[in-house]
Amino acid sequence: MTAEVLESPVVVAQAGTAPHPLLELWFDFRANRGAVTGLVVIVVLILLALSADFVAPHSPVITDNTAFLKPPVWQQGGSIAYPLGTDAIGRDMLSRLIHGARLSLLIGIAVVTLSVVAGTILGLVAGFYRGVVEIAIMRLMDITLTLPSLLLAIVIVAILGPGLMNAMLAVAIVLLPHYVRITRAAVISEVSKDYVTAAKVAGAGRLRLMFKEVLPNCTAPLIVQASLGISTAILDAAALGFLGLGAQPPLPEWGTMLADAREFVLRAWWVVTLPGLAILVTVLAFNLLGDGLRDALDPKLKR
């Protein structure tokens, strides 16, 4: 829940730079080894998620009453049937982790899409219609930012009831203010520019101004924030899952799996270690990607 960092004036000030040609972006991006690694990991995860039904050796929900808490294959007592062991009620860890990738990617993408769309619209509105509308929107965002984000998410989930959908909604609401602020700041700096005035003089309508003229010029900071937002979303949803408020069992969401396995921490390391590792690797990959994108989009930090 640390997305605030990116709102340092440095990034926002760059909002006005002209978009780079995609090819140049790709060259810049490719030079960054970390970013490429992140991208590769993400592509692998996406492939795994898409083909989970064929790749996973077992069903993620079917229990095996003869194999509770079997260790991974390389440990004594492990078997090749369950390469990464089984959980407390005899479900294959590997299959659950693979199916979990599906959920985590879904969470990341859905949450960010939701809050980017809603945040951009609110930010555009606030930036265009100054006055009462702006004050109302920005005050509400300030209030949301003042409350610790996890606490707010917990309260929202408590209201809506625990579950994957509600957890995603809660995280999207918590992330919203960042997008609103970025968009508004970008809009305000754009509106005063000549091309907007020119468009206005040419008789462009307000909606056209908002979406056709100004929005495309605010996309750079939004893209960076969104790619990093995916990692925040995955982390937050996992934290909710860990507190028992996110996805509900038997869904193989990694945070939920971790929560379910916490009592076995002293007895079966694999049920605790593996889901956390999966979260870490995924989040790290998205952060590497986001960093690479930012560097590529931000000429000031370029070598």
Partner: peptide, 8 residues
């Protein structure tokens, strides 16, 4: 106690 820890 945690059921899982009883054996230990």
């Amino acid at each position: 106690p945690n059921p899982a820890d009883i054996d230990a």
